[in-house]
Protein backbone atom coordinates (compact mmCIF):
# COMPACT_ATOMS: atom_id res chain seq x y z
CA UNK A 1 0.00 0.00 0.00
CA UNK A 2 2.61 2.53 1.06
CA UNK A 3 4.80 1.57 -1.90
CA UNK A 4 1.90 2.28 -4.19
CA UNK A 5 1.42 5.75 -2.67
CA UNK A 6 5.15 6.45 -2.94
CA UNK A 7 5.14 5.51 -6.61
CA UNK A 8 2.15 7.73 -7.32
CA UNK A 9 3.84 10.71 -5.62
CA UNK A 10 7.01 10.08 -7.61
CA UNK A 11 5.04 10.08 -10.86
CA UNK A 12 3.38 13.36 -9.82
CA UNK A 13 6.83 14.89 -9.18
CA UNK A 14 7.94 13.80 -12.65
CA UNK A 15 4.88 15.54 -14.08
CA UNK A 16 5.70 18.73 -12.15
CA UNK A 17 9.23 18.68 -13.54
CA UNK A 18 7.89 18.28 -17.10
CA UNK A 19 5.73 21.39 -16.61
CA UNK A 20 8.76 23.28 -15.29
CA UNK A 21 10.77 22.18 -18.34
CA UNK A 22 8.04 23.49 -20.67
CA UNK A 23 8.04 26.88 -18.90
CA UNK A 24 11.83 27.06 -19.16
CA UNK A 25 11.62 26.38 -22.89
CA UNK A 26 9.08 29.18 -23.28
CA UNK A 27 11.59 31.57 -21.69
CA UNK A 28 14.40 30.17 -23.82
CA UNK A 29 12.32 30.78 -26.94
CA UNK A 30 11.13 34.27 -25.99
CA UNK A 31 14.08 35.61 -23.97
CA UNK A 32 14.85 39.20 -25.03
CA UNK A 33 18.60 38.93 -24.41
CA UNK A 34 21.18 36.16 -24.59
CA UNK A 35 21.67 36.33 -20.82
CA UNK A 36 18.06 35.27 -20.25
CA UNK A 37 18.64 32.24 -22.42
CA UNK A 38 21.81 31.34 -20.50
CA UNK A 39 19.88 31.49 -17.21
CA UNK A 40 17.20 29.24 -18.72
CA UNK A 41 19.87 26.80 -19.91
CA UNK A 42 21.30 26.66 -16.40
CA UNK A 43 17.87 25.81 -15.01
CA UNK A 44 17.46 23.04 -17.61
CA UNK A 45 20.55 21.29 -16.23
CA UNK A 46 19.07 21.32 -12.71
CA UNK A 47 15.76 19.91 -13.99
CA UNK A 48 17.63 17.10 -15.77
CA UNK A 49 19.39 16.38 -12.48
CA UNK A 50 16.02 16.07 -10.74
CA UNK A 51 14.72 13.74 -13.45
CA UNK A 52 17.67 11.39 -13.13
CA UNK A 53 17.48 11.34 -9.32
CA UNK A 54 13.76 10.53 -9.33
CA UNK A 55 14.32 7.84 -11.97
CA UNK A 56 17.09 6.36 -9.85
CA UNK A 57 14.75 6.16 -6.85
CA UNK A 58 12.09 4.48 -9.00
CA UNK A 59 14.57 1.98 -10.42
CA UNK A 60 16.05 1.40 -6.90
CA UNK A 61 19.56 1.56 -8.25
CA UNK A 62 22.14 3.79 -6.56
CA UNK A 63 24.35 3.91 -9.64
CA UNK A 64 22.23 6.75 -11.03
CA UNK A 65 23.67 8.96 -8.29
CA UNK A 66 26.89 9.40 -10.29
CA UNK A 67 25.22 11.30 -13.12
CA UNK A 68 24.16 14.42 -11.12
CA UNK A 69 27.78 14.91 -10.03
CA UNK A 70 28.82 15.19 -13.67
CA UNK A 71 25.87 17.41 -14.59
CA UNK A 72 26.65 19.81 -11.73
CA UNK A 73 30.26 20.11 -12.86
CA UNK A 74 29.52 20.53 -16.56
CA UNK A 75 26.63 22.99 -16.24
CA UNK A 76 28.72 25.38 -14.13
CA UNK A 77 31.60 25.26 -16.61
CA UNK A 78 29.20 25.81 -19.51
CA UNK A 79 27.63 28.85 -17.87
CA UNK A 80 31.00 30.43 -17.12
CA UNK A 81 32.28 29.69 -20.64
CA UNK A 82 29.28 31.29 -22.37
CA UNK A 83 29.30 34.39 -20.17
CA UNK A 84 33.07 34.87 -20.61
CA UNK A 85 32.62 34.60 -24.38
CA UNK A 86 29.87 37.23 -24.28
CA UNK A 87 32.04 39.56 -22.22
CA UNK A 88 35.02 39.25 -24.55
CA UNK A 89 32.85 39.73 -27.62
CA UNK A 90 31.38 42.91 -26.22
CA UNK A 91 34.81 44.21 -25.26
CA UNK A 92 36.31 43.65 -28.72
CA UNK A 93 33.44 45.24 -30.67
Amino acid sequence: MTENVTNIILYISLGILVVALLLVFVRMFKGPSIQDRVVALDLTAFIAMGFILIYGVMAENAIYFDIPVIIALISFIGTVAISTYLKQKEKSS
Binding site: V5, L14, L23, V39, A40, L43, G50, I54, V57
Partner: peptide, 21 residues
Protein backbone atom coordinates in the same frame (compact mmCIF):
# COMPACT_ATOMS: atom_id res chain seq x y z
CA UNK B 1 7.18 7.85 2.35
CA UNK B 2 9.35 10.70 3.63
CA UNK B 3 11.46 10.26 0.49
CA UNK B 4 8.44 10.83 -1.71
CA UNK B 5 7.34 13.88 0.27
CA UNK B 6 10.80 15.49 0.13
CA UNK B 7 11.03 14.80 -3.61
CA UNK B 8 7.56 16.29 -4.16
CA UNK B 9 8.43 19.50 -2.25
CA UNK B 10 11.72 19.78 -4.14
CA UNK B 11 9.97 19.46 -7.50
CA UNK B 12 7.46 22.10 -6.43
CA UNK B 13 10.34 24.48 -5.66
CA UNK B 14 11.87 23.85 -9.09
CA UNK B 15 8.47 24.54 -10.66
CA UNK B 16 8.24 27.78 -8.64
CA UNK B 17 11.57 28.95 -9.97
CA UNK B 18 10.43 28.17 -13.53
CA UNK B 19 7.27 30.23 -12.92
CA UNK B 20 9.44 33.03 -11.54
CA UNK B 21 11.59 32.84 -14.68
Amino acid sequence: MITALLILIGSVFILLSAIGL
